[in-house]
Amino acid sequence: MRYLARRLGLLLLTGWAALTVNFVLPRLMPGDPIQVMFARFQGRLNPAAANALKIAFGLKTNQSIFAQYFTYLGHTLTGRLGFSLTYFPEKVTTLIGQALPWTLGLVGFATVVAFIVGTAMGALAAWHRGSALDSIMVPTGVMLSAMPVFWIGLLVLYVFAFKLGWFPVGGGATGGQGLASVSGFGAIISHAALPAITLTAVSLGGYIILMRNTTITVLNDDFVKFARAKGLPDRVVASRYAARNAILPNFTSFALALGFVVAGAIFIEYVFDYPGIAYLLYQAVTSLDYPLMQGIFLVIVLGVLIANFLADLLYVLLDPRIRVEARS
C-alpha cells in the first residue's frame, strides 16, 4: 500500500508540476492573446475589436499573477479549459473531445496491435531462433523501426492511395457522415487503415526485437530449463515461463508508448490529414492558439503520467517481485 500511496503521490506531484509549467510557459511569451489574434489576422481585424475580444475571452489583466494561477488551477481541475482562439466560441474541451477519439482510436489501436503482434512475433522468433522465420523477422523489424514514420507514411500513401487507389488519400472519414452510421463506420475504417498500418509497422519492429532478445535471455534462464526438466509441454514453457517473464520489459516500453500516443501521432496525422489531436496541436501551434495548445499539452502530460501510473500498477500485478516491494 505504501508503494501505491507513493506512486499516487508522485502522480499528483508531477501532475501539479505539469499544470504549473503549463501556466507559466505561455506567460513567458511576449504579447497577450489579443495581440496574437491581431497578428494572426494580419491587418484584417479591426483594431477596435481589441476591447470586445478582451471581454469575450474573459481576460482579466488586472488580476495578480497568483490570483490568475489559482483561478487557472480551479478552472483546470473542473475541466474548464477556456475557449479556443481559432475556433471561438468553441471550447477547448469540445475541440479536444472531438479530436481525441480519432487519435486514441487510431494510435491506440495501432500501438496495442503493434505491441501484441510484435511481442508474439518476437517470442516466436526467439523460440525458433536461427530458423528462416527468425532470420526474416529480425532484419525486417530493425529496418521498420529505423525508418522515419513520415517517410513510410508517404510511401504507403503513394502506393496504396495514389497509385492503387485502394484507400482514400486522407482525412478521418468522408465529410458529413457521423460516427454512428454504418456507412460512416466503414469510411472511418478505410480512412484509418493506411495510417494504422503505417503506425503499426513502425512500432512493430521495436517490440519484435525487444521481445526476441529478452526471450532469448529468458530461454537460457534456469527456470526455463527446469520447466523442461519438469516435462512441461512446449506450449506451457513458451507461454507461462518464457513469454510471461520476457514480456516485462516489453510491457514497460508499451506503457511508455501509450503515454506518447499523441506525440507520436503528429507525423502520421499530418501526413494522412487525420483529424486527431496531434493535428489539432499542429494547428494550434501554427495559429498561436494558446488556450488550445495549453489544453492539448495538458492532455498529453496527463496521458503520459496516467499511463505511467497504470503501468506501475499493472507491473505490480505482473511481477510479484515488485509486489513485495509494494507491500513493504
Binding site: 489574434m37 489576422f41 475589436a49 470586445a52 475580444l53 471581454i55 469575450a56 475571452f57 475557449f83 482562439l85 481559432t86 475556433y87 471561438f88 466560441p89 468553441e90 469540445t94 475541440l95 472531438q98 479530436a99 483529424p275 493535428y279 489539432l280 494547428q283
Partner: peptide, 16 residues
Amino acid sequence: WTTIPDNFNPLNPAGT
C-alpha cells in the same frame, strides 16, 4: 481548416 467551427453566430467577436 482543421475543424470547421460549429458556429453560425454572425456576431461572434472572434469571427475568423
